[in-house]
Design a protein around this nucleic acid. Structure first.
Lengths: 238, 238
DNA sequence: CGTCATTTTGAGGTATTTCAACGAAGGTGG
DNA sequence: CCACCTTCGTTGAAATACCTCAAAATGACG
């Protein structure tokens, strides 16, 4: 269902309209639109662990991921940190409310980003229905991802949540290339904060999945599904 | 922050763009746009407990709430039910993936809905940037609501989750009219499924808030904040 | 190769879930 | 108008699961 748009030469979007009767069709921007965006987009190359923007700061730009992984999180008063989303290739981020970002964005791996000034983007959107349409589909995509996360976090069992998380990552790995390997770019700590678990719980769940012979972890950032049957059963048995 | 758009005479949308630097501005549809939508929108009057559409059914329409409350939920294989969202006045719903609705929608109270055929809407969106812009803002609003829910569900304590939920409902009550009363249109069961708790836990949390002298429940569908100070403390202390 | 952050493992506490039963409310039909 | 029934809500006790605190081991990085 996930498809990657070509990114060579500039930012691209993958859009799926709300209520679409046509399904998850890949909608690439026209060349005209890509050049348009290129005109107002700045290409950034950032190292890992770099803050892209901070929560509550003035929201002047939106971003599109060209390559790499970015996380969006909020630091709660208790000192805990909630990871709201992971952004992968072609994902759009920079959601604001009242003119300020609703969360902090930080790179996980080395990334390529396309930064677009809202002041420049808005007038362009106002006169290009197709372009707004692309953004509409992109935001709808984010909404679906958020709903999925809510489902995941709502689960009671740690191993089930981890299984769903790995399933999600697998989709992205398949996206990039056909390997049985699941790449896990983020740390256990980030995973825990995304799943609404403690770091220890994620650890134990990982070991449990390994002991059960369902998943094999080769290194901390790569996993492989050993028993697909039972894995799918865990994922869907919520 | 929440503002209600006039709904007399047809569907209206309340939009907030992604990454807006101008803040939560109320953006009403122009009269031209309202009439345009009226042309393809059907006004529905539904009684409580009526299914609007079922999960996985073919997504042919999107809906806008004119009056009343609607819930969106998914039934999980385990028999449990997850309420993904409550929709109030001016909310847009009918999210699809692959041409099928991602959840079931059901009325809670008596509602007025505006039903819009996607087949009729899409071509209209394609040639009207302002209109797509409104929908973009609306979906962004839904995304923010979903992120908020994720934060809520991520909390460990039941009373805190219930407090945040009541806080959310209070915003909507204030929206409609200035009363210290919080209207709770949904059942305890729906509340529990939204918060990721059991019905019993919601009950106990309600009684706890009452015993602590923070909230007073007058009837099952109306609450009143007694101790605002401690209430806010609970809401923000996550 | 040493330092430091991250990860793993262990044991105990605490919250919610579960299971079960009771009480209340709303809706239907006689 | 009342009786009945179904659904929803409330309360109690035990079990499970995760969280917290603490310490050791592994891996990353300069």
């Amino acid at each position: 269902v996930q498809t990657v748009a070509a990114t060579a030469g500039g930012p691209s979007l993958r859009g799926v309209p709300i209520g679409s009767a046509t399904g998850d069709i890949v909608r690439l921007l026209s060349h005209r639109q890509q050049s348009q965006l290129s005109g107002i987009a700045t290409e950034l190359h950032l190292p890992p662990r770099m803050i892209v923007y901070r929560e509550d700061s003035c929201a002047q730009c939106v971003f599109i991921v060209g390559r790499g992984t970015v996380k969006a999180f909020r630091d709660l008063p208790s000192g805990k940190r909630r990871v709201m989303a992971f952004m992968f290739q072609d994902d759009l981020f920079g959601l604001a409310e009242g003119g300020h970002y609703v969360h902090t964005a930080q790179t996980i791996s080395a990334v390529t980003l396309y930064r677009i000034q809202v002041d420049a983007l808005t007038p362009m959107l106002r006169c290009d229905p197709e372009l707004v349409f692309q953004f509409l589909g992109k935001v709808a995509h984010e909404l679906r991802a958020s709903l999925r996360q809510t489902i995941i976090v709502g689960r009671r069992d740690a191993v089930g949540r981890l299984a769903m998380f790995l399933h999600m990552l697998e989709q992205h790995s398949r996206c990039l290339r056909h390997t049985p390997q699941i790449e896990i770019p983020m740390s256990r700590s980030d995973t825990a904060n995304y799943l609404g678990l403690t770091l220890e719980a994620v650890c134990r769940a990982s070991r449990t999945l390994e002991r059960m012979g369902i998943i094999a972890f080769t290194g901390r950032h790569v996993a492989r599904i050993v028993d697909r049957r039972r894995f799918d059963k865990l994922v869907t048995a919520l």
